[in-house]
């Protein structure tokens, strides 16, 4: 073999190149296919929801036996759920995460707790719902209410917060802690002064993801307090008491797409007569579940992009 032959393409290298090219195309197409459902889903939802989509849809109360008007009570219910479950799950979860990562010795008890946390994260949400029904609604006597549903959601999302807190904490190098301990600084002072400031964005990322999950869950709330329709008067400020039943976006969507039927007759406010729904009104009513889905999706995406922003901040502001 002389030198010029050494670098010319043989049939072997040619087939290798062809294979390389095909594999790359294949991967590219598969990646595209992955993005396709998301694009299709969103554009289909938005298209179907167009007749109702407006700011008023979010801020108005349902009217005409829910065949018109907005979904504000459901939006507000979801905000209640998220805020209340966050108030319980975030402090408890973060503290448990800090304990497990910073203080706990590696013994059978810690391992038992770890196992419990992992298993809790894997429990199906409908089982959490049953637990919530038993523990909060019946045993604690909270009844079907916002507070019972929020606590159920908190129990369900706590393992996620614990796990993400632990991950954020263990990303802080051990040498920082040792350097601090060596100077006679206590564990808590080390955590407060060095560990937490450098893991707080990671912890927040986990907490926000938890929020977006809580906002979208349906099963845990449908038997612990969510209700399909509450009647609100025109001009009345919508609020829930902690012990009251409530509406929520996810349950609203479930109810609308499975059980709701347009009313046959509606009260005409001008004449005071009962009149059949017009075709346009029916079409409008049918767009409501899609509008609800778009709003719910928007809420979840909003939280997710917040967490992405935090992750980005974390990457660009790394201090070591």
């Amino acid at each position: 073999m002389n030198n010029s032959q050494k670098f010319t393409a043989t049939s072997f290298t040619r087939s290798k190149e062809t294979r390389e090219k095909w594999v790359r195309y294949l991967m590219f197409v598969v990646t595209l296919l992955m993005a396709l459902p998301v694009i299709l889903l969103i554009s289909y939802l938005v298209h179907k929801a167009l007749p109702v989509l407006s700011l008023e849809f979010i801020t108005d109360i349902p009217r005409n036996q829910m065949s018109a008007g907005g979904i504000w009570p459901a939006v507000l219910g979801t905000i209640y759920l998220v805020a209340l479950s966050l108030m319980v799950a975030a402090p408890v979860g973060v503290m448990a995460g800090v304990y497990l990562n910073e203080y706990a010795k590696d013994n059978w008890f810690t391992r038992l707790i770890n196992l419990a946390v992992i298993n809790l994260a894997g429990v199906p949400s409908i089982v959490h719902a049953l637990f919530g029904l038993g523990a909060f609604v019946l045993f604690a006597g909270l009844g079907e209410s916002v507070i019972a549903a929020s606590l159920t959601l908190a129990v369900m999302t706590m393992p996620v917060v614990i796990t993400s807190t632990r991950e954020a904490l263990s990303a802080v190098p051990m040498s920082f802690r040792e350097a601090s301990w060596n100077m006679g600084v206590s564990r808590w002072q080390t955590i407060r002064g060095v560990v937490l400031p450098n893991s707080v964005s990671g912890i927040l990322t986990g907490v926000i993801l938890e929020v977006s999950r809580a906002a979208g869950e349906t099963a845990p709330i449908m038997i612990t307090g969510a209700t399909a329709s509450l009647t609100f008067r025109q001009g009345e400020t919508v609020y829930y008491l902690l012990g009251e039943k409530f509406m929520a976006l996810s349950y609203h969507l479930y109810y609308f797409s499975t059980q709701w039927t347009p009313p046959r007759l509606l009260l005409d406010e001008g004449t005071g007569e009962m009149l059949p729904m017009t075709q346009a009104a029916i079409e409008h009513a049918e767009a409501i579940p899609y509008g609800t889905a778009v709003v719910l999706l928007g809420v979840v995406l909003l939280f997710n992009s917040l967490s992405i922003a935090f992750r980005y901040y974390l990457r660009t502001h790394r201090k070591w």
């Binding site: 040792e178 100077m183 006679g184 002064g193 060095v194 070591w320």
Partner: peptide
């Protein structure tokens, strides 16, 4: 522990300002 100063094999700058690195331990007590 404060009576014994310890310097580790690999340099460890705490993710604080230079000033706070040195002032961290005195502040903590």
């Amino acid at each position: 522990r404060r009576r014994v100063g310890m310097v580790a094999p690999l340099p460890v700058g705490l993710p604080l300002s230079i000033y706070d690195n040195v002032a961290f331990a005195p502040r903590s007590f």
